[in-house]
Amino acid sequence: MSDLINTLGVSASGMQAQSARLRHVSENIANADTPGYHRKTVSFQEHVLRGERTGQVTPGPVALDQSALTRVFDPAHPLADSSGHYDGSNVDLVVEIADAREAQRSYEANLRMFDQARQMTQGLLELLRR
């Protein structure tokens, strides 16, 4: 029974981590045209309780992508320098959309695992009631 309860915790932590990842991806997409914006990334850390691995994950600290910002030529832009260029963002929409799909599918997989463990727990409790 405790394994089923642990499974619920593992899948719930996975859903929370993927929702945090999706939140940062959506922020990146929303700021793709913001001058000087650096892409945000989030990594996952394994959750350890009393020195033992639990199988759960937590979102780690948010990191800014330090790759070079794109140089945009627009002499009419208020941030343009004397050569007519300004720093754009380093957000690649193709990468962000791929990350969003991966996060969505991972979230759905954790949701299915959570639902399956819940159904198994419910079935076990029904058997014990008899």
Rank of each mutant, 00 (worst) to 15 (best):
L69Q: 05
V10N: 05
L124W: 00
S67R: 09
D99R: 14
D3M: 11
L69A: 06
V95G: 09
D3S: 13
S11C: 03
R101E: 12
R130K: 15
T121W: 01
L124E: 04
F114W: 10
G36H: 12
A117G: 04
D87K: 04
S67F: 04
D33S: 12
A17M: 10
S19L: 15
Q104D: 04
R21F: 10
V72Q: 05
Y37S: 03
Q66A: 13
R130M: 12
Y86P: 01
V94H: 06
R71V: 01
H38P: 01
P75F: 06
L8M: 11
V57W: 00
V72E: 00
E27H: 15
A98T: 15
Q56V: 00
Q56M: 12
Q122V: 06
D115N: 13
Q116S: 15
H47I: 07
V57R: 01
R71A: 07
A109F: 07
S13N: 05
D87R: 06
L79M: 13
A32N: 11
D115T: 14
I97C: 10
P61I: 04
L4V: 03
I97P: 01
N110Y: 07
E126R: 10
A109P: 02
S89Y: 04
A76F: 06
K40A: 05
V94S: 12
Y37V: 05
S43M: 11
T70Y: 02
L8R: 00
H77C: 06
V72M: 08
T70D: 06
L22F: 11
T54P: 00
L127S: 15
E46L: 09
G88K: 05
S106P: 02
N90E: 04
E52M: 12
A12C: 07
R50V: 05
Q116L: 14
R118Q: 15
T70Q: 12
G14C: 06
M113K: 02
E126A: 09
L124G: 03
